[in-house]
């Protein structure tokens, strides 16, 4: 059974159809890249998978390990292993990062019927992961993403990914706003999470990120549809010829 199956998905926002009968299948262990110009519907797809309110699914379905994902609340999806790394991680003043991480991790564990992490185990785990991502301890004491640079915010997303150990990671424009060094650190963090029982979907406008996170499959989106799928060489092809050819195809 595939990990994620998006079947003929059509989605509207404010009376405007953004996705048109889109289909996508992702298996465990695979890394997929979804590329496409601005406005092609990439971020909408990631939001709908994560359960963001404000989108109207007019037809089609999303199955996660065969279960109807669209029938679940966002927190139920998270507990089952769906993780969206946000393009613009929000700042939450007054909620200390450490407290947020523990609350979220234990909420997910509780929903799965697992025991909550003890404080020493939790702290040990966070410190290990933070160290590998070059995240200083004092950042963890601050409010979630408050005063973080763009690169720090993205690393904080990857820190959560490493901590929650989701089955499906969707990275929405992870490279936006990152300089080359920050991008490398973030990509190393993602690569460390590649595993036979985890799938990663990288959403990006630029091929650059795929030099660091090398995908197994590349899909090109245009105007709400997947217009072409292929191997990693498709990304290089796009870098040469641009998206214009697909604008017409859609």
């Amino acid at each position: 059974m595939p990990l994620l199956e998006v079947k003929d998905l059509s989605v509207r926002v404010d009376e405007r159809e953004i996705l048109h009968a889109l289909s996508l299948t992702v298996n465990e262990g695979e890394v997929h890249a979804i590329m496409g110009p601005n406005g092609s519907g990439k971020s909408t797809l990631s939001h709908v998978i994560a359960g963001k309110p404000g989108y109207e699914v007019t037809s089609g379905q999303i199955l996660f390990r065969g279960e109807d994902l669209l029938a679940m609340e966002p927190d139920e999806r998270a507990a089952r292993g769906v993780f969206l790394a946000f393009q613009y991680p929000v700042e939450i003043p007054g909620v200390a990062t450490m407290n947020f991480l523990r609350t979220a991790l234990n909420a997910q564990r509780k929903a799965r019927g697992e025991s909550e992490f003890s404080t020493p185990d939790f702290l040990k785990k966070v410190r290990e992961v933070a160290k590998s991502l070059n995240i200083p301890q004092d950042m963890l004491r601050r409010g979630v993403n408050v005063g973080f640079s763009g690169g720090e915010k993205k690393r904080n997303e990857i820190l959560q990914m490493a901590l929650f150990e989701p089955a499906l990671c969707i990275l929405d424009e992870m490279d936006s706003g990152l300089d080359i060094d920050a991008l490398r650190i973030a990509a190393d963090g993602v690569n460390a999470l590649r595993s036979p029982d985890r799938a990663i979907v990288v959403i990006t406008h630029y091929q650059r990120l795929l030099n660091y996170i090398v995908p197994d499959f590349v899909h090109v989106m245009s105007r709400g549809r997947v217009v072409k799928s292929g191997g990693k060489e498709l990304a290089l092809e796009l870098e040469e010829s641009g998206y214009a050819q697909f604008e017409d195809a859609a």
Binding site: G51, K52, D75, A78, P89, V90, A104, F164
Partner: peptide
């Protein structure tokens, strides 16, 4: 709403 969704996407129930 954006803060709420962020927390819910991380596993917190609406009430929490």
């Amino acid at each position: 709403d954006n803060l709420l969704f962020y927390l819910r996407a991380r596993g917190l129930s609406e009430k929490d």
